[in-house]
Nucleic acid binder design. Structure first.
Lengths: 135, 135, 135, 135
DNA sequence: GTGGTCTAGACCACC
DNA sequence: GTGGTCTAGACCACG
């Protein structure tokens, strides 16, 4: 029932739409347990100030999350995390991430990289904590 | 100097723009040696019919490829693969593919998958020849 | 002059505003005779605790009911049912209910259900005492 | 594959949000067969002019319909009805309409109307083609 | 031409 | 205070 303190940020230079970045970050925060069922997300106004974006952009992201059954929004109250959100987010994140990995490996294979080369790249990335510009 | 016979296809449901899919496929075909310097790409009309796509879309893809110095377009002749295209494509493909792999692994790490899990998924994918819907 | 014991409940998931649900339930309770002229409604505090709702919400509902001349609120006494409330409520309920029925039937017709199908559904519902989530 | 000619209209006085009215009308048009899979909906601009509303409002409705898998939207192409849209719409309409009917009948019963009275009202409405202000 | 995104700002309903 | 809706208008990406 807390009001969690999590930092959000968006990259307006990114080709990924801002509202999608917000959705992803919230999903990630839920999946990782930073937000639990019943917690209240930052209000539309707070979030829009934190991210320096228009409130409508935040509203759009929150609306999508509601359609995905991850949050409940109630006028005059705020946006709260749903009971089943953690399960849904964890599943979705894992599924997405595994699919991306498989696609990437398949691309490497198709491009002619050997299994050894691929494994070397993977190990390097795991060990060095490589961080892409946007999760 | 041949007119190579390679199948191209696009997925109009994909979030990736059609013209980008075309560019990628051509680059991939060049990188893998299906098209060699001097070979002629399918005409805009042929390609647009093959892919059931607006000719303008093919034109845009071909124009981009020309900007990248991968092809030459000459009136009355068609679009031909440049001398340095194979080298450029191989480098570009490798670079792209490696970046995708690193991003994907980083995502997995961020989502909490262990190094062992990731390596297992990678090995499975290498061994089973998993094929995503779009290179 | 009694303090009637009637259960109230609201569905915060409902698209119908909470204060409207309260108003409807009170009107229904009056129309059905559970509350008679002179009876005292649950205090704002009692009601808000019973419904697990913000007291302001109950206050707003009670204020609306006063505007409708269904109740009187007097400091130190509470909210009491007015003399003419039963008559007004019965009329209002009947009117509302008939309108809803007409709208629903019209929708069915517009969607292509036959008169026979509609009559069958109606009879089934009358006979089985079907209870929707919110009057 | 036609561009169907269907009239749409909204009531900006209605308590129902304009974008919801648009969604409902499109769903109804699909359910009734006025739009078939592959047909193109009026463009955002056309629709916004026809309804005298802001294009963003139409965009919002179309976006929702896409989330519901009723249409595909593609930049530069337009918004087309999906293969499974008719089935989904018919089911949804029927389900909604039956639920409304049951709720309405249950309300009537709860308010004390007799089965005979309810059946009389239903028959009258079926016979007279009563039309509410908004389907 | 198509739709997608974002901003700025207004007004409303609800708690 | 909260979110919901709508408008007006801009810029971009795609075909």
């Amino acid at each position: 029932m807390n009001k969690a303190e999590t930092k959000f940020s968006v990259n307006i230079e990114s080709p990924i739409a801002v509202f999608v970045q917000i959705e992803n970050q919230v999903q990630f925060a839920i999946a990782s347990g930073k937000y639990k069922p019943g917690d209240t997300l930052p209000s539309v106004r707070e979030m829009s100030e934190m991210l320096k974006v228009n409130p409508n952009t935040v509203t759009k992201a929150y609306r999508d999350l509601e359609v995905m059954k991850l949050v409940h929004t109630r006028r005059g109250v705020g946006v709260t995390v749903s009971e089943k959100a953690p399960k849904l987010c964890q599943e979705a994140m894992r599924q997405m991430v595994v699919e991306h990995l498989r696609d990437a490996v398949a691309e490497c294979v198709a491009t002619g990289l050997s299994g050894a080369e691929i494994r070397k790249l993977v190990s390097e990335t795991i060990d060095t904590g490589y961080q892409p510009y946007q999760v």
